[in-house]
Amino acid sequence: MRTPEAPTVAAAYANAVISNGAAPEGDAPDPAGAGDGDARGQEDADARGQEGADVRGQQGAGVRADARVYEGGAWASSAERLPFSEVRRVWDRVLGPTEQPHTGLRIGYALQPSALHVLGHLVLTCTSLAEAAAQAVRYLPLVSEAGALRLERGARRSRLVYRPSVPEGAMHPQQVEAVVAASVTAARWIAGRRWAPAAVAFTHARIGDLAPYERILRCPVSFGAERNTVTVATPELDLVRGPGDPELAALHRAHADRLLSGLAAPVTVRQRVRGWLDQAPLDRVGPEDVQEALHLSERTLRRLLREEGTCWSDLLDAARHDRARRLLASTDRTLERIAHELGLSGAPAFVRAFTRWEGTTPGSYRRGLTAP
């Protein structure tokens, strides 16, 4: 089982992004039927006009043309999870080289419950924003282990805090904006599409104009803050919004708890690098290649590997060892050719390395595999 993105959720989310590649085409979704009776006001009309502009052109076409990449396999499996690097790859395709501002914000705005899998269904059974926040805090790992939510209650104001858990710089700021905007959208499923928090804050600098942030979130928005937060008046948080369905909620919670208990431990950076090296061409690979694939800076990669008791050269050496054994066992390639495929200078260097690894020469190892 791979981590850390849930495949059903990741696939639904990625395919929604790929198919839309854009802002919503109308009002923010109100799947709970909890509209507040003023769904067609001027403010919503303005939002439809401003946020309905499709992110098309070269970026959108490229993403939609790649949609088939995210169909089938681990993306469609309910028994596997995807590494964060795969999900980040989707975002890189969606944002494109220009990294168009407000894309993540609009994706969060257009969120549908199905994109959150069982968590989305749980939120729809909640009778208050406090109850929905509690479910999100507990079950967010079913959606993503790239970050964590925490609810901080105060007498007058409370804050939902989002903290990325991946290495610094690995998560694009627009991914954070999508999470925060999605939190506001999910609250509107319960409180009505015109609901707005008291304030929203992001740790990163503003990306593009301020107006789209204020139109979508409908509250003061600040940047360069210490934490990513959605601030809500505590009485609003606790206000009961509807009768709810306790039996259905209990069924969803039981299912979510089963899924939660089956999650694998997070994959270490060492495991991610080794997994990447297993598929890489070892004759022309360097640390800069894996840094790009895992979205880590050289300094961060070196630090994380050191904290896990290893380093790039040790992992590359182990990958060469494994690759050498496979090639000796499954092919009749010469030692010189294998040496070059491993990124070694020639057959003598390969013999020295293999003898260090196995205590015997490559030729003896190969003969032993075919001995009766």
Rank of each mutant, 00 (worst) to 15 (best):
H295N: 12
T331D: 13
A318H: 11
R270Y: 00
W276Y: 13
A324S: 14
S261G: 14
T310L: 06
R284C: 15
L305P: 05
V290P: 00
L304E: 12
T268S: 11
G309F: 08
L304Q: 10
A318I: 09
G286Q: 13
L260Y: 10
R274S: 15
V269Y: 00
Q271W: 09
V273S: 00
S313R: 10
E307N: 09
A293Y: 10
L260M: 15
A280K: 03
D257V: 06
L263F: 02
D283Q: 08
A264S: 15
L315P: 00
R299H: 12
T300F: 02
W276N: 03
P266A: 11
P281Q: 08
S261R: 14
R306I: 01
R284H: 08
R274E: 12
L328G: 03
S313P: 00
E288A: 11
A318C: 04
L304M: 08
D257P: 00
D283Y: 08
D317P: 01
A264R: 13
S261F: 04
V290T: 06
S313D: 08
L328I: 04
D289E: 12
H321W: 12
E288V: 12
A293T: 11
Q271F: 11
L327W: 00
L301Y: 02
G275D: 09
L282A: 01
L304T: 12
S297G: 14
D332H: 15
S297M: 07
S297Y: 10
L263N: 00
G275M: 08
L296A: 09
R320H: 01
L304C: 04
S330M: 10
L296E: 07
R270S: 05
P266C: 15
A319W: 03
S297W: 08
T268F: 06
D289R: 07
R303C: 01
L328S: 02
Q279F: 03
L328K: 05
S330N: 12
L294K: 03
E298R: 12
E307A: 09
R306Y: 04
L305Q: 10
R284Q: 15
R306D: 09
W276C: 02
Q271V: 15
H295E: 14
Q291K: 13
